[in-house]
């Protein structure tokens, strides 16, 4: 089975798990407004470090709105490699989304379809003494849209949160080989944090 299929199966499994934990007598908490700072990684494990925040507002029990911000220090582990120095490498994502939340006794599961933008900037310099020094700087905006799953655990004012964001841009259909979607696969974000209920 293709790797990305596993990810989508995990996504589906979460959904199904939630479905079967539904209970009419549930004492679920409806979090009307939460702020959920966190840290995370992309699934190119270890090379990108993310500082993120999700603000979620549930105007009704089943309808959720979210704003997700992420500052990513990219490629932190190899910034000087074979005479190639990374001068800087970061990206900023800002997305807004809407979706729905499902509740169980002490947790909730939110699924959001998110749309926003991504700003990326990085610069590399080749400083091999055998050649002239050459630098390349690349920066620019690109669309950012995808699916976000947010899990909240805990009934108190502060709670534990886990998030997974699967970007769908660039659109994965780029070739016959599943590896061709690596731009998306490597940028799946896994985040952990502590959330606070505001109201």
């Amino acid at each position: 089975m293709k790797p990305i299929t596993y990810i989508s199966l995990v996504f589906a499994l979460f959904a199904c798990t939630t479905a079967f934990t539904q209970n009419k007598s549930s004492t679920a908490v409806v979090s009307e407004l939460t702020i959920e700072p966190g840290v995370g990684v992309h699934t190119n494990f270890g090379t990108d470090f993310l500082v993120t925040n999700l603000i979620q507002w549930n105007p009704t029990r089943r309808f959720s709105l979210g704003a997700h911000t992420s500052f990513n220090y990219n490629n932190i582990s190899q910034r000087d490699f074979n005479y190639v120095k990374t001068n800087y490498n970061y990206s900023i994502n800002q997305k807004f989304g809407a979706g729905t939340t499902f509740y169980s006794k002490k947790s909730s599961h939110t699924f959001l379809l998110m749309v926003g933008f991504k700003y990326t900037a990085f610069k590399e310099t080749l400083y091999n003494p055998d050649f002239d020094k050459v630098s390349v700087a690349i920066k620019g905006f690109s669309p950012d849209y995808g699916l976000m799953y947010s899990y909240k655990k805990g009934l108190k004012k502060c709670f534990f949160t886990f998030r997974m964001y699967i970007p769908l841009y660039p659109w994965p259909v780029k070739g016959s080989d599943i590896d061709y979607i690596d731009g998306n696969r490597d940028n799946i974000a896994l985040e952990l944090g502590i959330g606070v209920r505001i109201k």
Partner: peptide, 28 residues
């Protein structure tokens, strides 16, 4: 009835997730 509706919605979500990723497997 409510539970059935929820399960139906989740089924749709799961199906959409699967569809999104299966779409990329078109053979050259």
């Amino acid at each position: 009835e409510k539970q059935k509706a929820i399960i139906l919605k989740l089924g749709v979500i799961a199906f959409l997730c699967q569809a999104v990723f299966y779409l990329n497997s078109c053979e050259e």
